[in-house]
Design a protein around this nucleic acid. Structure first.
Length: 235
DNA sequence: GTCCGGTATA
DNA sequence: TATACCGGAC
């Protein structure tokens, strides 16, 4: 359901985005490694929690449980001591259970297929895609990710923001996210679109005036002229 | 006080 | 399909 002109826009968007990302990427601890265990820990923590809060807990967690085997050999209470500080305390349980499952029953071999990842409690479609792109750098559509950032960026670029958050809208977002990564460079593309959503294309008062992608953005063309936020002139 | 968010669950 | 989860931002 993606039109020719949308494909063209997506292609141009991707080129501009990657250029922007080279100079503006965030330096985040979980971006230094490709170890699926590290990616798992970061993504579970990031599910409902902001980056700034996660960073110190993530580092403390990996100091205490440097490998998935160490985590599997710990107790839930020991895990809770660290991860419960983030709230949503069931995530401690998820991490611990996944570690035991992978360490005991699968001999520490980390699953690298979408179906196997989705069988693990605590891992849904987003987290599975994140592991496939950030740890395994899988060059296929299963490595697509849609979180609020991706959803916001895509819906602004293509002017679909008026749609309701229904199943059709979701399918559309996933279709775009798959198309976005289809020609490889999965790790970089997905990190880049997340950074765009976190740095420029933020939810309120997006910094459209300094966004290199504004030339092809429907939101910039159709919505920004009507709101003219004062602070945007001083960027 | 209200909104937000991936996943599990019903 | 809707809602709970939990803490932070506003």
């Amino acid at each position: 359901m993606i039109s020719e002109s949308q494909l063209n826009t997506l292609h141009n968007f991707t080129e501009l985005l990657l250029k922007w990302f080279e100079k503006n990427r965030r330096d985040l601890p979980w971006r230094k490694k490709r170890d699926p265990y590290h990616i798992l820990v970061s993504e579970i923590m990031l599910q409902q929690t902001k980056v700034d809060l996660v960073i110190p807990i993530y580092e403390e967690f990996l100091r205490r449980f440097p490998t998935i085997e160490v985590l599997a050999g710990a107790s839930l209470e020991q895990v809770r001591l660290i991860t419960d500080k983030l709230g949503y305390t069931r995530r401690s349980k998820f991490l611990f259970e996944i570690a035991k499952e992978l360490s005991d029953r699968r001999k520490g071999v980390f699953p690298s297929s979408l179906d196997e990842l989705l069988e693990l409690k605590g891992i849904g479609r987003y987290t599975a895609g994140a592991i496939l792109s950030f740890a395994f750098e899988k060059n296929d559509k299963n490595a697509a990710i849609v979180d609020v950032n991706v959803e916001r960026v895509i819906s602004r670029i293509f002017g679909t923001w008026r749609d309701e958050r229904n199943a059709k809208f979701d399918r559309r977002m996933w279709a775009f996210a798959e198309e976005f990564i289809i020609n490889g460079n999965v790790w970089t593309k997905n990190q880049a679109i997340m950074d765009l959503g976190a740095i420029l294309c933020v939810s309120s008062n997006p910094r459209c005036y300094i966004c290199p992608m504004n030339v092809l953005c429907k939101y910039y063309k159709q919505v920004v002229p009507k709101i003219t936020p004062l602070d945007s002139f001083f960027e």
